[in-house]
């Protein structure tokens, strides 16, 4: 089954000098985890995302579309990256998801892909 692991973290934790050091640490852990998932044949794709300040949202309403500078919702945590994996079941997906490095307050949402 394919699962999307969506990584939500408080915005701004990787800014500044302390943030940069934190980022280096987190990136190293991501690379190790990604390597392990690739070797297990679980990894489909994955990436970090640029900050929400770069986001543009298209809103469709009443048949017309407008562009909005920013994410679809202003929340404390924002989508910062994802993995797409293919594993046997939810427990395996959860085991990988638990090991995703996140800062305190970070959340990882595990969602199975729809099958048609």
């Amino acid at each position: 089954m394919q699962y999307m692991l969506l990584i939500y973290e408080p915005e701004g934790v990787f800014e500044g000098e302390a943030g940069k050091a934190r980022l280096m640490d987190v990136v190293g852990k991501h690379m190790a985890l990604a390597k392990e998932m690739r070797e297990a044949g679980a990894m489909q794709s994955g990436s970090g995302l640029q900050p929400v300040t770069t986001a543009t949202t298209i809103i469709t309403n009443g048949g017309s579309q407008t562009l909005h500078d920013g994410p679809f919702a202003e929340t404390r945590e924002q989508l910062g990256g994802y993995y797409l994996i293919d594993v046997a079941d939810l427990d395996t997906a959860l085991a990988y998801a638990r090991r995703i490095p996140v800062v305190d307050g970070g959340k990882v949402e595990v969602r199975p892909l729809a099958t048609y």
């Binding site: 699962y3 079941d89 939810l90 427990d91 395996t92 997906a93 595990v110 199975p112």
Partner: peptide, 14 residues
């Protein structure tokens, strides 16, 4: 069904 919860007795660690 949809999230793929496994039909297994989990391993000791869990």
């Amino acid at each position: 069904r949809d999230a793929g919860v496994p039909f297994e007795v989990p391993g000791r660690a869990a």
